[in-house]
Simulated assay, not measured.
Amino acid sequence: MPRFNLKHIEAFVLVADLGSFRRAAARLNTTQPNISNRISQLEQHIGQVLMERDAGSVRLTREGRALLEPARRVLASVDAFAEAAGGGAAFEGVLRLGVTELVAQTWLRRFLLRMKRDYPAIDVELTVDLSENLSSALFSRDLDLTFQNGPFDRKARFTEALGRCPHV
């Protein structure tokens, strides 16, 4: 049996994050059967079932939940290696970014200029909208990242406070 590789781990993390083989396939520019095959090969190689598959839904098993964070760390290490080896040019793809009008009118331009300088192969698809709509798009996985102001009715897995802005 061939060893598993980064494509298997990447597929596992994306299916877990996106909750769908189809969405993971779209994100990786491949087919749903290819993603399903990668997950099956990974499960066979490690001898554990990582996901329960039902019609249209995917849930991590106990083993899948236990291995998700180590898998994320593997991918983060690969990104760190690529960054050290070649800078931001090693990253490519599309970032679907959502921002509020406050962000768009204040510091977004500086952020996008720096992003283009540091990560020239990443294209940003920008959405400017209300926080409520951005939150919905983020949780439905239509956006990858949002810069928005609170308060929030729910919290994303990776949330970072960027600062405070007084309302005038």
Score class of each variant (00 low, 15 high):
residue 80 A to F: 07
residue 147 F to S: 00
residue 67 L to C: 04
residue 68 L to A: 03
residue 124 V to E: 01
residue 41 Q to Y: 14
residue 73 R to L: 15
residue 62 R to W: 09
residue 83 E to G: 03
residue 130 L to V: 15
residue 65 R to D: 07
residue 153 D to H: 10
residue 59 R to K: 15
residue 40 S to P: 00
residue 114 R to Q: 10
residue 156 A to K: 01
residue 127 T to F: 05
residue 118 D to N: 08
residue 140 S to F: 06
residue 100 T to P: 10
residue 140 S to N: 11
residue 42 L to F: 15
residue 148 Q to T: 11
residue 94 V to H: 02
residue 138 L to W: 14
residue 78 V to T: 08
residue 141 R to Q: 08
residue 43 E to D: 05
residue 155 K to T: 09
residue 149 N to E: 05
residue 131 S to P: 06
residue 134 L to M: 04
residue 31 T to G: 09
residue 118 D to E: 07
residue 97 L to Q: 07
residue 41 Q to N: 08
residue 22 R to T: 13
residue 30 T to E: 04
residue 39 I to C: 03
residue 125 E to L: 12
residue 87 G to R: 13
residue 62 R to D: 14
residue 149 N to Q: 11
residue 33 P to F: 13
residue 130 L to A: 14
residue 116 K to F: 13
residue 112 L to G: 01
residue 63 E to V: 06
residue 35 I to C: 09
residue 42 L to M: 07
residue 81 F to L: 10
residue 51 M to P: 02
residue 135 S to T: 09
residue 144 D to G: 03
residue 58 V to P: 11
residue 59 R to S: 15
residue 121 A to D: 00
residue 108 L to W: 05
residue 23 R to I: 01
residue 150 G to I: 03
residue 44 Q to E: 15
residue 49 V to Q: 08
residue 27 R to L: 12
residue 75 L to C: 02
residue 130 L to G: 00
residue 149 N to A: 09
residue 71 A to H: 07
residue 98 G to S: 03
residue 74 V to S: 05
residue 154 R to M: 11
residue 77 S to R: 09
residue 47 G to R: 03
residue 138 L to E: 09
residue 138 L to N: 06
residue 66 A to L: 15
residue 149 N to M: 10
residue 129 D to G: 07
residue 29 N to P: 00
residue 154 R to E: 06
residue 25 A to S: 13
residue 115 M to W: 14
residue 131 S to K: 02
residue 88 G to Q: 02
residue 86 G to E: 03
residue 58 V to M: 05
residue 24 A to P: 14
residue 114 R to E: 14
residue 93 G to E: 02
residue 83 E to A: 15
residue 101 E to T: 08
residue 128 V to M: 07
residue 142 D to N: 12
residue 99 V to R: 06
residue 27 R to P: 14
residue 129 D to K: 08
residue 27 R to W: 14
residue 95 L to V: 01
residue 87 G to V: 01
residue 107 W to Q: 02
residue 49 V to I: 05
residue 72 R to A: 09
residue 45 H to A: 06
residue 67 L to V: 03
